[in-house]
Amino acid sequence: MKGDTSTINPLENEAIYIIREVAAQFEKPVLLFSGGKDSITLVRLAQKAFYPAKIPFPLMHIDTGHNFPETIEFRDRLVKELGLELIVRNVQDSIDQGKVKEESGKYASRNSLQTTTLLDAIEELNFDACIGGARRDEEKARAKERIFSVRDDFGQWDEKNQRPELFDMLNGQIELGQNVRVFPISNWTELDVWSYIEKENIEIPSIYFAHTRATFLRDGLIWSSDDEVVYREEDEIVEERLVRFRTVGDMSCTAAVLSNATDIATVVKEIRNATISERGARIDDKRSEAAMEKRKQQGYF
């Protein structure tokens, strides 16, 4: 038997508390799982929250169809190992149904198309709470988001009319048709997540570590070359580079960084000394200063 629990990370205690509140306050919660490090961290926290019982809600992946293959392999393996239920909904289906239109041109991405697929899935499966791995340090509009963030019938975020959150108390009361987005790691920074992955020895997809990849340069960022998914101009020359990814989004909008960090300890060290923010490599946020705020108002996760 160990001594006392005083050395447990306060952020971990907070996240576990939030995840338990979701299970207790909602009828049908789901954990939004992208295969990225933040959602993998959420899965670990949920395991801890309910031990020795299983996680009492399923995972759902909104698949853009443009994922890094390594992420999908990893996702399927994790779900199998933990005996969890995984629901997958495809952006391709929303495109085929004519609900959204594929973007075209140099910066085409399926990232914002995910919103429609997500909202449809929430309605179809009657989810009243969606747990996500967003963090307030990622972006300025996210910095204003609550831990329990209420969305209306249209899945929209009303940033000027948010419920105050006092002390530890989370108010999850909603009307039929509304749902709540829940962010248990709101108060974690990128470094907190990486340090936790290191400490807990959590397995993550291989693309987070340095590997040789066919890439090309655009706007000072390094893009993975995949002619089916990522649009490339003829003068954008493909070269092999030693890179890793800091975030795992849609391939079409996630740039790589030069790195030779092949293990987690080196990654943590690299993040500690990084001079570019994590979302600096996400072209979807560079579209305008208010890009994230606009997407969130429309129901983006």
Binding site: D4, T5, I8
Partner: peptide, 16 residues
């Protein structure tokens, strides 16, 4: 007193 799968003698304030 459990924190995840580990047993502890004391649950300190502010821990889940």
């Amino acid at each position: 007193i459990f924190f995840h799968d580990e047993l502890y003698k004391t649950a300190s304030r502010r821990s889940s």
